[in-house]
Design a protein around this nucleic acid. Sequence first.
RNA 1: GCCCCCGUAGCUCAGGGGAUAGAGCAUCGGUUUCCUAAACCGAGGGUCGCAGGUUCAAAUCCUGCCGGGGGUACCA
Length: 593
Amino acid sequence: MNILHTIQARFRTALTGLVPDPEPFVAMIKPTQDAKHGDYQANCAMSLAKTLGKKPRDVAQELVDRLDLSSLLEKPEIAGPGFINLRLQSGWLGQQARGIANDERLGVAIASPAKTYAIDYSSPNVAKPLHVGHLRSTIIGDALTRLLRFLGHIVITDNHLGDWGTQFGILLYGYKNLLNKDAYAKEPVRELARIYVEVRNRIAQAGGGDDEEEARHPIADVCRAETAKLHHGDVENNQLWQEFMPHCLEEIHEVYTKLGILKFNHEHGESFYNPLLPGVVDSLLKSKVAEEGDGGAIIIRISKDNVSLVRKRDGAFTYTTSDLATIQYRLEHFQPNAMLYVVDFRQTQHFANLFEAAKRWGVTGVEMTHISFGSVLGREGKPISTRKGDGTELIDLINQAVVRGLEKYEASHAERTAAGHDVPELTDDAKSAIAETVGIGAIKYADLSQNRTSDYKFDYDKMLATEGNTATYMQYAYARNRSIFRKADVDPATLRANPPSVTLDSPFERALALQLLRLEEALLSAVAEYQPSAITAYLWDLAKAYSGFFQNCPVIQAEADALKQSRLLLCDLTARILKQCLGLLGINVVERM
RNA sequence: GCCCCCGUAGCUCAGGGGAUAGAGCAUCGGUUUCCUAAACCGAGGGUCGCAGGUUCAAAUCCUGCCGGGGGUACCA
């Protein structure tokens, strides 16, 4: 069910014969910003008037005359310079709502043709604790994966781990010089994390926050040397790398599990592609994509003063080389229609260069998109450094959110009980579930509801607030909704199997039904821009419409049984869509809170 | 130096050719014998950084300037 497409189809027919190509004008139909202008508006008459050499309002009238309104639209209104205001027939809305009652997909069509996406997200550097800075890629990528899959696409997820970098030099140095053997035997993950932080601190203390100073530190030199030995095949370091990796992965997976991130299809890190790199450079040279640069380095000249380095003077390869190898591998093994990279905005130029290099190398016919996102800023508005140890580890943040979730629940419970409300008494398990669901949902929603390209300020209080456009608000709307079914003693499955007719006499019922039927529009707009915030914007509109309905349209106490059944159906659809949309964001719901 | 992004209410941010520029928070006022008040209703608050230009129509597109951030071959 796609209202916009349905209206557009009618306009396409009306425009055919008037203009050679209706499409640009069909595209000028959109939802109104203000309900007093109707549900949708067509803004094409003004520009059409120019093309046809007529007056805009006359063109609008002509279009309206040609438009087939039957069983869909009320008589359109022509307003202002030539806006055509469209209002859907309430009867039609009611029928459509009833029509999706028994549809598991809630009226959302399966994409045809389905596409195959290879999506790269999270991609942390292993061997150091996950940090708040890793949050965005992880949850944006996770949400996009869920969305694309729900729409029927094939999504192959790959966590492109940074498992071959300088951080292993740090770990190797720490292992050889600072290891507590007993602690390592008992809790290897924790001990590795400790020595990593310890080495970093030793370097940082000497450097006093100056990167260049730190880079010249003798320990930093030794760390680099350890990394170089690893890369050159040193047996001891490679054995240690093999030994560390499972522990590093375990630590990362623990956080993913806690966060409720989908399992990755692949976790091919940089080390995986390492053996392919010499071949990539040879191929680049043979095909004249790459050339020799200063001092024997191998470069790809993207433009006059913009080059990508693929092999350093010392013979080492770079992340561009590794990324090209990755593209080659993914093309060969996944045959994707699109390759997506959820990586922060600072790598914009890298990806622009990478995609250009890939094209010259012969990669065509596949979408390559850098899904960029802004920084997570500290309270002072500056990016939180991952290096100086001033940020909270992600796992601590998550735990903190869960604790606050529980506090919020208990405070609210006490308040509502004192005010004499009907508040359910819950078991400790149920309370823990609420705390997890609310706390983790809060973190995710706060991030995903931002336009991803903007920076955002990380603020515990804000993300854990329960007012306004937050996960908690949606979860609460869901829980109150479920309560209706318990009190009415109605089984939603029965209701769906034999859906009652839906009447929309109240403006609150009508507004709710309209929002319910906009689900597909919202999801398609989210996927078109790879923008999860389109889903949260829709959720907010839906929740507000539901709130008006909840406030003004009694369900259990409805004047007539037919009306009660109709309203129950609207409630059921609301609950399912809330749950579905939150689910696409990786956020859960609870039946009571 | 060159390239990219950003500048909208006190704060955090939507909107990226279309009607009187929106939301949340904060502030102020109101609502609980009523399906969960983690809720609802209402009020105040703006030279959309500045200046030009394109257009029937500009917060939105173009140019310049100011301010902030990022990138700029041997980190990824």
